[in-house]
Amino acid sequence: MSAWLRQHRRAFGQALRRLTKATGLASALVIGIALSLPAGGYTLLESLRAIAARLTLEPQISLFLQPEAKRAEAEALGKRLRTDPRVATLRFVPREDALRELQAVEGFPELIAALGRNPLPDAFVLSTNAAAVDALAADLAKLPGVAHVQADAVWARRLAALAGIARLGLWLLAGLLGTGLVAVTFNTIRLQILTQRDEIEVSKLIGATDAFIRRPFYYLGLLQGLAGGAMAVGIVAAALALLNREVGVLAESYGSSFRFAFLPAGDALAVVLFAGLLGWLGAHLSVSRHLRDIEPG
């Protein structure tokens, strides 16, 4: 084994021993808890995004006719819509059918009886593609006899915007807590340097290079970050497992088998590696700042 490799193994061993002491583990836990917040948020958001994506796969447009429109006018409109190449599927919902559907809903029969007439207009429900939805909705609104056009893309877009805000919030949180991680490592390494002040001074006096002295601290920062990242992933996994037990009960009551999915392996690995990188950075800043102060004289 080469001398270089032997020195790295020694530095790694030293760092590992320091990490497994109570203070090292506590710091790793602090990092883990801090990182579990953005990592957990990201996991939930990704799960919800999967549902949202399914919902908006086929943008729908609901087209409501004026209440006084005649059935013949509706049929003429239907023929016209069928010729439009942007319309993928078309379904006519006569006002009687709509009323029947509404009457099936708890509480509504009394309300409708009180009105004494059918308040609902004839309607078309048509599906189109995402690119055409806005233009089509605008064109449809101009047709004679059309009272109101409702494009479901609007709420899909709102949902996307909300998800965007949430994602931005998570990035901000991740940025803040990432900075916190660097600060935690910076401080752990500073304390470690202070505890080993004598050893560092003597080592410098008898011919240790700066690289030799720095190495165990870099490893400590890296290992502490990696351990913190792994803890964050563990915390998210445990929290999701707990959450999914309750979510499962709720989802089944809606006839859904929805569960929050755990982070994909690649993303989980990225969290761990990123935490390791930040730990290394914290160590680098601390070592650069504090080791120069220890000069034998």
């Binding site: 004598d198 050893e199 001074e201 003597v202 410098k204 006096l205 008898i206 011919g207 240790a208 290079t209 700066d210 030799f212």
Partner: peptide, 18 residues
């Protein structure tokens, strides 16, 4: 400097033992 010091044997007034 480290390589210079490795070729010297230094005994200090206060020993500097760990």
């Amino acid at each position: 400097i480290p390589y210079l010091r490795r070729n010297l044997g230094l005994v200090f007034q206060d020993q500097k033992l760990l």
